[in-house]
C-alpha cells in the first residue's frame, strides 16, 4: 500500500489548489493576477520613485527578480556542473552496456544515486524561473504601451493606487533610447550580443565528448547572434532588460564557477578553432575540481593532486598484481597439499 509522506501531502494539496484556482478563474486570469500584474505595477511604481525614468525601473526590477531567483539559479548552476562532471563515467557506461538497455538504465540510475546527482536538478530551477522571466518582459512591453490599444490594455492591469495612476503613460526616453521602439544605433544589439557571448562562454563547461563540444561551440555563437537580432526588432526596453539580465548573470556565474572557459580566452584566438579538450579523469571528485578554474596556483595544486591520484591508481594496480600473485601462489600450494 502506498504510504503518503508529509511532503507528498503538501505537494498534492498545492497541486489541487492550483487546479481549482485555474478552473475557477481561467489560466490567463491567474497568470495576470499572480505574475503579470504584480511585476507590471512594480515597474510603474519604481518609474514614479526614480523620477519617472522607466529605464531605471527596468534595471531595478531585473536586479530584484534576479536576486529573488538567485537560490534557484545557484541550484541550477551546481546541478549542471555536477552533471557535466559525470559525463565521462556516463560515456563509459553507455559504451559498456550499449546492447543491454535494461542494464544501461539500471547502471545510469546507480551512477546518479552514488554521486548524489539529480538529473532534474538542472531543468527544474530553470523551468520554475521561466514563467517569471516571461511575465517580466511581458510587463515591460505592456507598461510601455506603444499604441493606443496597448494603453487601453494597460488600464485594465493597474492597481488603484494614485501614485501608479499618475505615472501612466510612462516616459519612454532613457539615455539615447526610446524604450518603446527598437534601438536604431545598434548599440543595444551589440551590448546584448556581447554580454550574452561572455555569459555563454563562462557557463559552458569543457567536455571530452566531441559532439558536445561542437554543440557548445554552436550555442556560444548562435544564442548571442539571435538575441542581438531580436534586439534590433523588439522595443529597446526589452533589449535593455536582456543586457542588464546578462550582466547580472555574468556576475553570478563568476561567483559560482569563475571565468569558466573564458579564463584562457584571448582576442587573437577568437576566430581560430579551439583544440579539443583533453579527456578528463573518470574520478568524479577530481573532475569537478578540475572543471572549476580558480587561478594558476590552484591549477598547479590540482595538477599535483591529479599526479597523486594517478600514482594512487598505479599503486592500486601494482598492489592488485601482488595480490593476484599471492593468490595464485596460495592456490598452487593448496593443490600440492591435496596431491600429497
Amino acid at each position: 500500500m502506498f504510504r503518503m509522506t508529509r511532503k507528498t501531502l503538501i505537494i498534492l494539496a498545492i497541486a489541487i489548489a492550483v487546479v481549482i484556482v485555474l478552473a475557477m478563474l481561467g489560466p490567463i486570469e491567474v497568470w495576470n493576477l499572480v505574475l503579470l500584474q504584480p511585476i507590471l505595477n512594480l515597474l510603474v511604481l519604481l518609474s514614479s520613485v526614480f523620477f519617472g525614468s522607466f529605464g531605471i525601473a527596468i534595471i531595478v526590477v531585473t536586479i530584484i527578480v534576479r536576486l529573488l531567483t538567485f537560490p534557484l539559479t545557484l541550484r541550477q548552476l551546481h546541478a549542471t556542473k555536477a552533471m557535466s562532471a559525470l559525463a565521462p563515467k556516463m560515456q563509459e557506461i553507455q559504451k559498456k552496456y550499449a546492447k543491454d538497455q535494461e542494464k544501461l538504465r539500471k547502471e545510469v540510475a546507480n551512477l546518479y544515486k552514488e554521486s548524489g546527482v539529480n538529473p532534474a536538478g538542472c531543468m527544474l530551477p530553470l523551468l520554475i524561473q521561466f514563467p517569471i522571466w516571461i511575465a517580466l518582459y511581458q510587463s515591460i512591453t505592456r507598461a510601455l504601451a506603444s499604441s493606443p490599444e496597448e494603453l487601453l490594455n494597460l488600464s485594465q492591469n493597474l492597481y488603484a493606487l494614485p501614485i501608479i495612476q499618475q505615472t501612466v503613460p510612462l516616459e519612454a526616453k532613457f539615455l539615447w533610447l526610446n524604450l518603446g521602439v527598437p534601438d536604431t544605433y545598434f548599440i543595444l544589439a551589440i551590448l546584448c550580443g556581447a554580454s550574452m557571448w561572455v555569459l555563454q562562454k563562462m557557463s559552458t563547461l569543457p567536455s571530452a565528448d566531441p559532439r558536445q563540444q561542437s554543440m557548445s561551440r554552436t550555442m556560444i555563437w548562435m544564442m548571442p547572434f539571435m538575441f542581438a537580432m531580436f534586439t534590433l526588432m523588439v522595443p529597446s526596453g526589452l533589449g535593455l532588460f536582456w543586457v542588464v539580465s546578462n550582466i547580472i548573470g555574468i556576475v553570478m556565474q563568476y561567483y559560482v564557477t569563475g571565468w569558466g572557459t573564458l579564463a584562457g580566452f584571448s582576442l587573437a584566438g577568437l576566430f581560430t578553432r579551439a583544440p579539443a579538450t583533453a579527456p578528463q579523469p573518470a574520478t568524479t571528485e577530481l573532475a569537478q575540481q578540475l572543471e572549476t578554474p580558480v587561478g594558476a596556483e590552484q591549477e598547479e595544486a590540482l595538477a599535483a593532486e591529479r599526479m597523486k591520484q594517478e600514482k594512487r591508481l598505479e599503486h592500486g594496480k601494482s598492489t592488485d598484481k601482488r595480490k593476484d600473485r599471492r593468490g595464485s601462489h596460495r592456490d598452487r600450494s593448496r593443490k600440492a597439499r591435496r596431491r600429497s
Binding site: Q138, I140, S147, E149, E150, L152, N153, M233, V234
Partner: peptide, 11 residues
Amino acid sequence: GFLCGGGTPPS
C-alpha cells in the same frame, strides 16, 4: 516590426 508581450496590435 514586432509586437511583444502578448499585447494587442494597433488597428
